[in-house]
Structures are given as structure tokens and as C-alpha cells.
């Protein structure tokens, strides 16, 4: 078993997930998320990308292997505290009933209005959004609110599950830019995508999954070359 490097915020060590009916979602996958870096996880549908991500904040638990946060097995940590350090942004923005301010206060009930405005500013939204309700927001705006809500918990790692797959190209680009800024601020990012060109644009580290297994580097390169070739018109 390798010793965690100092800047490895999140480390997946030979993790496997098997369902009760015997189907394997993940088999012996290793992956690392470093502070200030973007680890992009790609692969075809059903490869186990989202399952891997969900192991990071313990929305799923591995049936084999382990996940370490700052060198400590997440099974030993209080899940609620872990999830405030390892935030999750989902594929479809989920806004709770109520205003944007009320949504943000789910993450931090004691947050002042100034703090809420600051977090909205961090994701490129103005203070006027505080009183808007979820139904009035575009997909891109809603996803930004969800990111701001997650940032309010003060995470060190952001797990992002295809956060731009339901967005228009402009929103996708602006969220990619935002994530680069967040990584530059020191956050560790794990970003799941099925868009191979996006992987090329964002990745500091690449993890390619197929059939629940991580492809070795050479196979991953070949897979990506072929996939990008297929993606292009």
C-alpha cells in the first residue's frame, strides 16, 4: 500500500463497489485528488464514474478498498463533517424550495447576508439573485447557485458530477472557467464527464474508467484518441 503524498487530499485505494445482486459497479480503482489540481474522470455510460465520485463524500461506501481524506480513512470520519470538507455538485442543479438566500442558508444557517453575497460573487452572480427563487433561474444560474451553496461549507475538495452536461455552451464554458479559478485558489477538484474534449481542456490528472475498471495509461490514451475522433463531426 503506497504512502499518501502530502498534497493528496482525497485518495481512492483499490476501491470496489458490488451490488447485493452480485453486479460490480467498480473493481479495484485507484485515483487521487490533489489540492489545486483538477482530476477528470471520463468513460462511457455505466463505467462507474458517478459511483467513484459518490465514494468521495460517502454517499456510497466501497465494498472493497478504502477512501482516504487527508490520509484518514473516511469510514473513520464523521460523515456530516466529511461532506462539509468534500463538497458535491450534482449533474442536475437541485434547488430547494424558497429563495436563493434560503438555499444558501441550508449550507450555513448562520451566514450573514454579506457572506452570501460574497459567495454568489465568487461564482459570478450578483446580490440581486438572493431574493430570486429557483424556478426563475436558468440552468447555468441554478448550477452556479448550487456551487455557491457548496462553497459555503468551506470545502477543500469539490466533487463535480457532469455539472455542465445539461447546460448550454456558454454556461458550460463559464463554469469550466470558474472551476479553474477554484482550483487556482487551492481546491482539489474531481470532475466527472462523458465529454472527452472537456477532459482535454480541464484535466491535470486523468482517470478513464470502462466496465468499472480504470484503464491503464496506454489504453486510456488510445480510448481517448478514439473517443475524441468519434466526437468530432
Amino acid at each position: 500500500m503506497s504512502t499518501p503524498v502530502p498534497d493528496a487530499l482525497l485518495r481512492f485505494e483499490s476501491v470496489g463497489v458490488s451490488l447485493e445482486e452480485g453486479r460490480d459497479l467498480l473493481i479495484g480503482v485507484d485515483a487521487v485528488v490533489h489540492g489545486g489540481r483538477i482530476t477528470v474522470v471520463a468513460g462511457p455510460s455505466g463505467a462507474g464514474k458517478s459511483t467513484l465520485l459518490r465514494l468521495g463524500d460517502r454517499l456510497e461506501v466501497p465494498t472493497s478498498g478504502r477512501v482516504l481524506f487527508r490520509g484518514v480513512d473516511v469510514a473513520m470520519l464523521d460523515p456530516c463533517r466529511l461532506r462539509r470538507s468534500v463538497g458535491m455538485v450534482f449533474q442536475r442543479p437541485v434547488l430547494f424550495p424558497g429563495t436563493v438566500a434560503e438555499n444558501l442558508r441550508v449550507a450555513d444557517p448562520a451566514a450573514t447576508e454579506a457572506r452570501l453575497i460574497a459567495e454568489l460573487g465568487r461564482v459570478g452572480l450578483g446580490a440581486e439573485f438572493l431574493d430570486r427563487v429557483g424556478d426563475d433561474l436558468s440552468g447555468g444560474e441554478a448550477q452556479r447557485v448550487c456551487i455557491a451553496r457548496t462553497l459555503l461549507t468551506g470545502p477543500e475538495v469539490l466533487l463535480m458530477d457532469e455539472p455542465t452536461s445539461a447546460l448550454d455552451p456558454w454556461s458550460r464554458q463559464s463554469i469550466e472557467d470558474l472551476v479553474r479559478v477554484l482550483a487556482a485558489e487551492g481546491l482539489g477538484i474531481m470532475w466527472v464527464t462523458h465529454d472527452h474534449a472537456q477532459m482535454e481542456r480541464l484535466a491535470d490528472h486523468r482517470v478513464v474508467l470502462r466496465g468499472g475498471r480504470r484503464l491503464p495509461a496506454a489504453e486510456a490514451e488510445q480510448y481517448l484518441r478514439e473517443a475524441i475522433g468519434e466526437d468530432q463531426p
Partner: peptide
């Protein structure tokens, strides 16, 4: 489930 897990993911018990 998405709404409930979104709350759980924020560290909500």
C-alpha cells in the same frame, strides 16, 4: 432522492 442527497452532501444530518 436528488433533493435529499443534495442536503446530505452539504453535511446536513
Amino acid at each position: 432522492r436528488p433533493e435529499i442527497e443534495a442536503r446530505l452532501a452539504l453535511g446536513v444530518p
